[in-house]
Design a protein around this nucleic acid. Sequence first.
DNA 1: TGCCAGTAAAG
DNA 2: CTGCCTACTGGCA
Length: 768
Amino acid sequence: MQTTGWLFDVYPLQDRMVLWFITAAGERLRVEDGFPYRVYLGGEPGRVRSLAREAGRRGWVKRHYPHRGRNLWSGEEIPVVALELASYAHLSRLRGWFGGLKDELAVFNADLDISAYYLYSRRLHPCAWYDLEAREGRLAAITLLEDPFAVEFALPPLTVMTLGLTRDPLIPLGSGNSVAVGWEDRTLELEAPDIPALIGELAHWLRRLDPDLVLSDWGDEGIIPPVWQWSQQHRAPLPLDREPQPVPRQFHGGRTYFSYGRIVYQGPAAPFYGRWHVDRRNSFYYKESGLMGLAQIARIGQMPLQQAARASPGTLITSMQLARATTDGILIPWRKGAPERFKTAAELLIIDKGGLTFMPPIGLFFDVAELDFASMYPTIMTIHNISPETVNCPCCAGDGAGAVVGEGAKSVACDQWPVISVYYQPKTANRKPQTQNPWPSPHITPEANYRLCRRREGLVPRTLRPILKLREDLKARAKEVGPEEGSEYKDRQNALKWMLVTCFGYLGYKNARFGRIEAHEAVTAYGRDKLLTAKEICEDAGFQVLHGLTDCLWIKKEGMTGGELESLCREISRATGVKLALEGVYKWLAFLPSRLDPRRPVATRYFGAFNDGKLKVRGLACRRRDTPPLVRLAQEALLEKMAQASTAQELAAMRPELEDLAESFRLRLREGQVRPQDLLITRVLSQPAADYKVDTATALAARQLERAGIHLQPGEKVRYVHREPKRGPKELRVQAAPFLETLEDYDLELYLELLERAVEEVMMMVLE
DNA sequence: TGCCAGTAAAG
DNA sequence: CTGCCTACTGGCA
């Protein structure tokens, strides 16, 4: 049978892959494809062959044969033996066996996700159209019909069913919570106490609607696990999957991990087989960029959509690097064992120089332009060829570039590095001459003088290049079609942004598959260099540089014009190789002082209004998730009002009105005209409730929940209201959500204080 | 009052 | 897919 189909779902089953397509005619088509998982083994040839034979005798390996693959680090082709697994279940046994051997074995491609490995090997992309031929349910031929990096693509029509809880997700299903099922514009509440009836109803609607997509709130943790467990207990069939064969379904518990310096909790996953289950409360990418964003990253990340929905940006970018490597014939080293040791203080010093900061002057400024480098770090990696294997590569070692490289350079540099935060005094006279040659040679990195490969383009640049291109195209397209139709393109480019940001972060992680500290260091060094170059060009053009932060500059000049700014951007883009764009011109912009030392500015707290009336607010109370909604609303209301003013006079004239606004919020608090939800403070639990040494409100709230039988993992959120403080024991100082029905009072003083700080934060910039 | 545990932001 | 730095608050000795 020949047909055109859109690749919808992919998953492994015993020794083969199952693929679901939505055909052009709207049919849901299931086909199987035999795919042997291949592990590659390198080392002493005789020993490798005998190990392969032994694995065959044990029944784990179906066949083995000599093969050649490329070593990531040297770029050279090396002989290996390919082992084809008899069943996917043998993969962990094989790994366990290899792990126990004492040999100097090089094991490759042993820890890849099976679906992703299949997609890489077959060069298939989910959510794309194919010409395919199937015989007796087996895939016979398949041809990709579109460019996975295309700006335009669409989803076929999907049948959608929604699932949700009727009450707070912390209340378990069956202990006061119920399920809400929705389709088209209808919703139905299914009462939980009568369990067989609930399962029956749910099964009925799944069968009747046969949804392609089940879009849930809290489905992964709150709905599917108990519902599935009940269906097993009561032997009541529940067709979560389209897959006719029995599938393994276990709800492995959630994970807590660190990412970008903060603790994150990822709940357990409950994927379906042959249809999509996306829990929008358990999906970073859905929250960030919706279903089109998910489809976008599944396509280019070559990862089944349900996996992509639950993946972090790091997983996605790693998947793209693995896909690139597989396609290029690069062998992927097996990362066995536990994470490595923590970084030493010296290593931290090396990595964490980070972005350059020019400190802003405190106060209110008018007619300020903001210039931002677009995707600065990923662009640097791409144009300078920075990748783990290109830094001080062996292949260019003899080229006599004349630079100090490698181990030596690292130890020299430490004390010589400049202070990263420069207390910058804006100046218009006595400018330094422009840097002539910002780096000694295009192949030698600034500061540390590492040598970059000039023979091979690195894996990271090869991976990033098409993503950067697509993101630029999507941005341009969004601008072209306007805000209405542009939102879909914006969502998609936003999804890509997170992959790009994380790619840089991953270079600095020892434990990342493609990380290397020197590469990370090289990127930030180029970044500092480029920001400095930009500053100097601005000053040469007569601009005053007020503030700079990693990849942004805030500048001003009397009587500056749009054209002048555009040509300034062009010049800097040309000089640095990274596109610098005008973010906008502010009518007014405020840089805030430190709260601890009011004479000192802080780099990351500022707010202002652009010429078009749009606000940009960073670091203020309303941007923090631990600010109660009432306080956030108050600050936002003040800012919205202020955004209407253009001049110092207009702003000053607004003062009485702003005072009234603030007073109205104070009054609401004093008179108790607030809903408990508006007083909720949300915080992330950094450790198990019992481990807290200090009785912070967070710890008290978490313990209160524990007593009610609700156990939160580190990385999960706690929400609570501060109660009247003088009412006896500590346990009563806060009241945790969801138990707010019984809330009798709140700590008026504390909330007034929080409100006052938020008001003061913005009002201090409005002159009397 | 000072120290330090705990938490969050912008890039 | 696994420990940025800096600013700030508040409990506790």
